[in-house]
């Protein structure tokens, strides 16, 4: 694919073409050049950035949904959520590697098993706290402790050595200029289908109605004969199942090790808060926004802006990749400044 200006040949991808070439195809040369430079056109591979962001967004959103559901219903941030997901991913590993089950079947079995553990933890720890009307911070600190305990139990059972599923390494295929493996395509599709199912669950089932009622007003919902404890159990079930899917997808794409939950906790929280904590659609949007922002900001070349539109000569100016973890937080703070409840958060 040739650069429209002719100055920077060899850029790839149909999406690059759609975004950069078509809208400015009929504009004067200088305008196209400016547009390209401001967006750091030299260095961006748009198709790949969007593909990478979709994969990352799909993984994070499955985890963020569970986190945001628990917050919406129980009003505390569950710091152990990512560790539940990793526990499920380890169960998948054992079923896949030790018993030789297919990954699909392993997830089908591991997800409810993890959900049962999640429900047991709720019954043993969070339910008594709810009964005693303990402060939110108490539940949060308890979840922090559960997370640490789970991480160490994982280390005890499966050791600290990194694990991978029995998936052969795959060569990428090119789709619209982006290079993706079949696993990554599967992750994006699974993420999308899971979101649709979640939407249907929330809006087309009795459980969804009950969940929304409890989220709006738990006392009123109880007065309407909704068994809130039963709904909470189902909520844990769904949150854990989605978490296991997210955790397994991250482990498939990357690696599996006991500390994985801790390493992904911050991006998952950022995604949930960015989208508007308590709102499942916000969690999806937050995850995708975060993934896109991380990838695009790192690819931007600020030299054109810094040189005030090319008034003087400066070399390429890009944010060091060493600051990547900070990008999520800067974006989070910037969004919260304008929308303190997050992108889709309720006022």
């Amino acid at each position: 694919m040739e650069d429209p200006t002719g100055a920077y040949p060899g850029r790839r991808g149909l999406i690059s073409y759609v975004k950069l070439v078509i809208p400015f195809h009929f504009l004067p040369h200088a305008r196209v050049d400016t547009y390209s430079k401001v967006l750091g056109y030299y260095n961006m591979d748009f198709s790949q950035i969007i593909a990478n962001s979709l994969v990352r967004g799909a993984e994070l959103s499955l985890l963020a949904i569970g986190l945001t559901m628990v917050f919406d219903i129980l009003k505390f941030a569950n710091f152990a959520h990512a560790d539940y997901a990793v526990l499920g991913a380890f169960l998948v590993y054992s079923l896949n590697q030790v018993l030789g089950l297919s990954l699909f079947l392993a997830v089908i079995l591991a997800a409810p098993a993890t959900a049962l553990i999640g429900i047991c933890i709720d019954t043993a720890i969070f339910k008594p706290l709810r009964r005693k009307e303990a402060k939110v911070v108490t539940a949060m600190v308890c979840s922090l402790g559960i997370g640490i305990a789970l991480r160490n139990i994982l280390r005890l059972i499966w050791t600290s050595r990194t694990k991978t599923y029995a998936i052969p390494i795959q060569k990428p295929i090119e789709i619209l200029g982006a290079r993706l493996t079949f696993t990554q395509i599967g992750i994006v599709l699974t993420g999308f289908i899971s979101m649709v199912i979640f939407h249907l669950l929330l809006h087309r089932t009795k459980f969804g109605k009950a969940l929304r009622a409890i989220s709006d007003n738990r006392v009123l919902a109880s007065a309407c004969a909704i068994d809130s404890e039963k709904v909470i159990k189902w909520m844990w079930f769904i949150a854990c199942c989605y978490g296991v899917m997210g955790g397994t997808m991250i482990a498939m794409e990357h690696l599996l090790y006991p500390r994985l939950g801790f390493d992904i906790l911050i991006p998952v929280f950022c995604a949930a808060i960015l989208g508007g904590i308590g709102n499942p659609y916000g969690a999806m949007l937050g995850a995708l926004t975060l993934a896109l922002a991380e990838n695009i900001v790192l690819a931007l070349d600020f030299s054109y802006l810094i040189s005030l539109g090319g008034l003087f000569e400066v070399g390429p100016i890009q944010i060091s990749t060493g600051y990547k973890p900070a990008i999520s937080f800067v974006i989070l703070v910037a969004v919260l400044l304008f929308r303190p409840t997050g992108i889709l958060g309720r006022k």
Partner: peptide, 17 residues
């Protein structure tokens, strides 16, 4: 790059940019 991350795709894109 930072240690203990699960995704290094943005870093790799930059490396080859």
């Amino acid at each position: 790059y930072e240690l203990n991350k699960v995704d290094y795709k943005a870093e790799l894109l930059r490396l080859f940019a």
